[in-house]
Simulated assay, not measured.
Amino acid sequence: MLSLKNVNVSFDQQAVLKDFSVDFNQNQTTVIVGPSGSGKSTLLRTINLLNYPASGTLSLNQTSFTFPNHFKASDVSRYRQNFGMVFQNFELFPHLSALGNVIEGPTQVLKQSKADATQKATDLLNQVGLAQKTDAYPNELSGGQQQRVAIARALAMEPEFILYDEPTSALDPELEGEVLKVIKDLAKKRNSQIVVTHNLNFAEEIADHILFLEEGHVNYYGSAQGFFNSENDRIKNFTKKMMS
Rank of each mutant, 00 (worst) to 15 (best):
Q14R: 12
Q14Y: 06
A15N: 15
A15G: 12
V16Q: 15
L17W: 15
F20S: 09
S21K: 13
V22L: 09
V22D: 10
D23T: 03
F24S: 02
N25A: 03
Q28N: 13
T29S: 06
I32D: 08
V33L: 15
G34F: 07
S36W: 10
S36C: 03
G37M: 07
S38Y: 08
S38K: 01
G39M: 02
G39A: 05
G39Q: 13
K40A: 08
T42C: 15
T42I: 12
L44I: 12
L44R: 07
R45W: 01
R45S: 11
T46L: 10
T46D: 12
N48F: 02
L49M: 10
N51L: 02
N51Q: 13
Y52A: 12
P53L: 14
A54E: 15
S55C: 09
G56Q: 13
T57K: 15
T57Y: 04
L58W: 08
S59L: 00
L60R: 11
Q62C: 00
T63N: 02
T63A: 02
S64D: 05
S64Y: 05
S64W: 01
F65S: 13
F65V: 07
F67W: 03
P68E: 15
H70N: 12
A73Y: 11
A73E: 05
D75L: 14
D75H: 03
V76P: 01
V76Q: 02
R78Y: 08
R80F: 00
R80E: 01
R80A: 04
Q81K: 06
Q81T: 07
N82C: 00
F83T: 03
F83H: 11
F83W: 10
G84M: 00
M85W: 10
F87Y: 14
F90I: 04
L92R: 13
F93L: 10
P94F: 08
L96H: 06
S97M: 00
S97L: 09
A98S: 11
L99Y: 00
L99M: 12
G100S: 06
G105V: 14
P106T: 07
V109S: 08
L110D: 00
K111F: 04
Q112T: 09
A117L: 13
A117P: 11
T118C: 00
T118H: 00
K120A: 05
A121C: 11
T122M: 06
T122L: 01
D123Y: 02
L124H: 08
L124C: 07
L124A: 13
L124S: 06
L124K: 09
Q127M: 11
A131C: 03
A131K: 04
A131Y: 02
Q132M: 14
T134K: 11
D135W: 04
Y137L: 02
P138G: 01
P138K: 07
E140K: 09
S142D: 07
S142M: 02
G144C: 10
G144H: 09
Q146V: 14
Q147E: 01
R148G: 02
A150F: 05
A150R: 10
A154M: 01
L155F: 09
A156S: 10
A156Y: 09
E158T: 04
E158S: 03
P159N: 00
I162N: 07
I162D: 07
